[in-house]
């Protein structure tokens, strides 16, 4: 699913440097649930941004499915992001002036390539179905400030899933939640991504939620699944 080779990335006017010799997530049509852990500033979020095409590497290749993200134009990367990737953020990042339904449908409203005009009815139905599956069916007309934190993150998960992407990238999705909600949200993400056979990459600080992931990539120890990246052939350094 994701193949990263010889990747070098550096932010302009910054000492930060991320280098990945080889990293592979999911294969042979098999979805995988991967946790990325490590200290702040180690490059976890940058890795997600690189996979999503939000930032581009200095060199190296990033393949998602059969597409080379690093060689795409800006417009292609946007369309790729809209269609193939669902993103979940730590602070939910819901749009305050839109209600639950409109927030879930936001990816369609902001990117014409998803074709909301022609699929309006289908998209709305799918959004309602998703909201129903996460227990928000009675709160479709509410605005984010009328929801609890857990409910807001559920809306964000629905927004990530509504385009039926191949890959879910979640950046600290439980970072702003209480312990009870952490488990509920994580289970929800697992359940939804498994139901759609979607590869899931979750960046987290919280080592207490790593149960249930197929693999853990540790940016601090440069280990993947307890094996040193270099010896496993996967190398991540920063």
């Amino acid at each position: 699913m994701i193949e990263i080779e010889q990747l070098h990335f550096r932010y302009p006017r910054s000492d930060f440097h991320l280098q990945i010799e080889h990293l592979s997530v999911g294969s042979d049509g098999q979805a995988e649930k991967v946790a990325v852990v490590g200290p702040s500033g180690s490059g976890k979020t940058t890795l997600l941004n690189l996979i999503a095409g939000i930032v581009t590497p200095e060199s190296g290749t990033i393949r998602v499915g059969d597409q080379n993200v690093d060689t795409m134009s800006d417009a292609q990367r946007r369309d790729f992001r809209s269609a193939k990737i669902g993103m979940v953020f730590q602070r939910f990042e819901l749009v305050e002036y839109l209600n639950v339904l409109d927030n879930i449908l936001l990816p369609f409203a902001i990117n014409d390539s998803l074709g909301l005009e022609s699929q309006n009815q289908n998209a709305a139905q799918l959004a309602k179905k998703l909201a129903d599956s996460v227990g928000l069916q009675s709160k479709l007309r509410r605005r984010p400030n009328q929801l609890s934190q857990g409910e807001q993150q559920r809306v964000a998960i629905c927004r990530a899933l509504v385009t039926n992407p191949q890959l879910i990238l979640a950046d600290e999705p439980t970072g702003n939640l209480d312990p009870k909600n952490k488990r509920l949200i994580l289970d929800l993400i697992f359940q939804q991504s498994e139901a759609r056979n979607q590869t899931l990459i979750v960046v987290t600080h919280d080592t207490g939620i790593l149960d249930g992931f197929d693999r853990v990539i540790d940016f601090d120890q440069f280990y993947v699944d307890g094996t040193r990246l270099q010896t496993a052939g996967d190398e991540v350094s920063s």
């Binding site: 749009v95 990816p107 902001i110 990117n111």
Partner: peptide
């Protein structure tokens, strides 16, 4: 700014 950044991450162009 955060709202715009989120939209960009979700696939919204700067033009949009």
């Amino acid at each position: 700014a955060r709202e715009m950044e989120t939209m960009f991450k979700l696939g919204c162009s700067r033009g949009r």
